[in-house]
């Protein structure tokens, strides 16, 4: 059971990384081209998002017919629906960083295998930023994990 769960996680990660590579979104130039509405706008990221959200929504639909996941006892999905200052401030900071370099977490991590120094520098700084958040914002590490969205 546990081994199957790990296998499912590897398979999901593999599909995710393969999809990122095929989509072209590992390239910061394409990401920034999408975000640059005032320049030579490159709409391809919109197609990536449409394909991803579309298929992901099928999964969400299927979930409503299931009492529990195939390999686990329960769905660990955030139920919090309240939009708060933390969420908006975090999203704003993330957006600024995304716009500065054109990297978001998935493509940056997947890009590590290419061995480019720029990707490694970004990922190292991203891990430092996550650690900084843990040190400054999480008063009870682990204690509130159940309430925190895993997204």
């Amino acid at each position: 059971m546990s081994a199957l769960r790990l296998l499912a996680a590897v398979a999901s990660g593999l599909l995710f990384g393969l999809g990122l590579a095929l989509s072209g979104m590992m390239d910061p130039r394409k990401v920034l081209g999408f975000l640059d509405l005032a320049g030579a706008w490159d709409p391809s990221l919109a197609f990536v998002l449409a394909g991803a959200v579309g298929v992901s929504a099928l999964g969400t639909l299927a979930r409503t017919r299931m009492a529990h996941p195939v390999l686990a006892a329960r769905f660990a999905v955030p139920e919090n629906r309240r939009v708060d200052a933390r969420l908006l401030a975090g999203a704003a900071l993330f957006g600024i960083g995304w716009g500065l370099a054109g990297f978001c977490p998935g493509p940056a991590l997947a890009g590590l295998v290419l061995g480019l120094p720029a990707v490694a520098v970004f990922v190292a700084a991203m891990l430092a930023g996550m650690a900084l958040h843990r040190l400054t914002m999480e008063r009870r590490p682990g204690a509130d994990r159940g309430a925190r969205p895993a997204a």
């Binding site: 401030a89 975090g90 999203a91 600024i96 960083g97 970004f122 700084a125 930023g129 900084l132």
Partner: peptide
């Protein structure tokens, strides 16, 4: 950018 993305 990495710091902002990680923290944000």
């Amino acid at each position: 950018a990495g710091l902002l993305v990680g923290f944000g």
